[in-house]
Design a protein around this nucleic acid. Structure first.
Lengths: 339, 339
DNA sequence: ATGAAAGCGCTAACAC
DNA sequence: GTGTTAGCGCTTTCAT
């Protein structure tokens, strides 16, 4: 390893004490002679001295200036964008985000969480479908690390950021109803996290209210929450005889769209598809995907802001920040074919 | 902040010395009585004691166990996937990746790099078009932090991972030539990093070799390296009268594809498009995108492996690892329309 | 205008 | 079996 230049080296080289160097380098060197100041500064540059982060945080009792971010999949457009928002805010405060992609694996999630805690991060943003506040509390122990729960979990308590999933489901259903669909189905993930439950509930409720016949057994297809998952569901979707599909998220919708395209099923003429999230890919598939918009980047930004304010101000109480969603009509939905 | 439980607290509570606690907790406690061991372990769990990371690294002289990863844009499918690969490897070694997305902004890149260095990371993976090894050396100073350059920069020296861009360009051109195209154009970014230069050179050379007329002034369109960039180039592409386009990367290709779709230009009947990278989106646009495949996840994995081996073994010399690329034929390319 | 000394929380020789 | 002691690199009183 490279020989590390310490404050002592600089002191020795400058012929002064470590105190002097420390003070000058921390901008508290007014009381030293200009000459000494210059000598020290120059030596610093010359030897590329950078204070040891560990030693510094140790004595300053200020922890790592890191915030942990746990997401299911960093390579997905959704969480990639989310993380970008977090980082933007963190940077302003000289905080560094420690990002972990846990592949929806509970073991990994816990391991990463422990690692983050061991590194004494200042706060956490957790986006996990499975992790409960109990688990988190247990891992955090008595350290009182502030954290923000994102998106998934909201049967739990704890400060969190979420979007109005119920309303999103409502909007999707209303859109399909307005277009005149009478036979619709939903595509949802097997592991039903709270946000999906709400999303679907909003959807069902609105259909029923509009007198559209919907049977939660018959008219729900379970698929994995991914493009391949949606793709794999193509046959089941076609077999259902529905004229419109509500996909739990855009990834599934896009996978399904591909399956339909391959079978030369025209969307939306033969089948309408509405997704959920509004990831950037939606604009580039064909037909462009109608969806429920979530302000993804903003969710990242606001999560980080909330976390930072919790970190800086212990007393900020538990709070919930709920973001609005909206319907974005593109080209994958239309009136059912008349025949 | 939460009251921090220190090793001294545990020692006091257990009625033993800090040494005893330290040893037992570090698995070196064989020499202590079972009874003491149990007492200490129990107290640790009871109070949720976790050793202070800073103090620990300070004395162990082992740095942070972090590797820095600098990418242009974490929300892009390309780098999202790349980073995922890095993280996979890092995890095995209990290393934590510190990921920064610098938006292709040289100022930010340098700032992030400094921050990483200040945190005494063990190594670096740098994917930047603009950063030179000189800049990097200057920032690293005398610390001898090993680093891997990824993808962009290869006029420089230093250990690096790269793909055979020249060959990629060759493959793209050959494919178009084989289909019978005689009028082709290329879409490239303004900021011409080394990999693009090579990519384009392979393309031009192969066209010429095949007696396809190609003028580097007339037949190259400059666009920004993104979906909107490709989209914005639509008019220029159409105006060129070409029957095939080689887009510098898939993002541009997909943006262009959208522009063409909007104008009802049929691909590949009227115009063939070939991209570069093979990001996962390629499978989901319509028509599916023909492209030059780069093993993105694997690039992340191998970069991390190379870095780790450099970290563990100082003596490993500078090396270059070059990955093969290959042509993936999908549906966006075809024979030129006969008329 | 400068420095000596204490100590942050931890580990590891080296006693006893 | 267990404790004493000396630091790791740094900042900060408090002297001089």
């Amino acid at each position: 390893m490279g020989k590390k230049v310490t404050i002592r080296d600089i002191a020795r080289l400058a012929g002064v004490s470590v105190t002097t160097v420390s003070q000058i380098l921390n901008g508290k060197g007014a009381r030293f002679s200009k000459k000494t100041q210059h000598r020290v500064l120059k030596l610093r540059d010359q030897y590329g001295y950078v204070p040891d982060f560990n030693a510094r945080s140790l004595i300053l009792q200020k922890s790592s200036s890191m915030i942990g971010v746990l997401v299911p999949d960093i390579s997905s457009p959704f969480f990639g964008t989310f993380v970008k928002g977090v980082q933007q805010v963190a940077q302003h405060e000289k905080m560094v985000p420690l990002i972990f992609s846990a592949n929806r694996d509970p073991k990994l999630e816990q391991e990463y969480l422990s690692q983050m805690i061991a590194r004494s991060i200042d706060g956490l943003i957790i986006a996990s479908a499975t992790m409960t506040t109990d688990t988190i509390s247990r891992l955090i122990g008595s350290r009182e690390i502030p954290y923000i729960l994102f998106d998934k979990n909201y049967a739990q308590h704890g400060t969190r950021v979420l979007t109005d999933d119920y309303r999103g489901g409502t909007l999707a259903a209303q859109h399909l109803v307005n277009l005149g669909h009478q036979r619709v189905i939903a595509l949802k993930p097997r592991q039903q996290s709270e946000n999906f439950t709400q999303r679907m509930k909003g959807f069902y409720d609105t259909l029923i209210k509009n007198k559209v016949n919907f049977d939660q057994k018959r008219d729900v297809i379970v698929a994995s929450l991914s493009r391949p998952g949606g793709y794999a569901a193509t046959a089941a979707v076609l077999a259902s005889g529905a004229t419109a599909v509500f996909a739990g998220n855009d990834d599934m919708a896009i996978g399904l769209l591909r399956g339909l395209t391959e079978r030369k099923i025209r969307v939306p003429d033969r089948l309408s598809i509405i997704g959920y999230d509004d990831i950037y890919m939606d604009e580039y598939v064909s037909p462009r995907l109608t969806t429920i918009h979530q302000p993804i980047l903003d969710l990242g930004i606001q999560s980080a802001k909330m976390l930072l304010s919790k970190i800086h101000d212990d007393h900020s109480s538990e709070q919930i920040r709920r973001f609005p969603v909206k319907l974005v009509i593109r080209q994958s939905t239309g009136q059912p074919r008349q025949n």
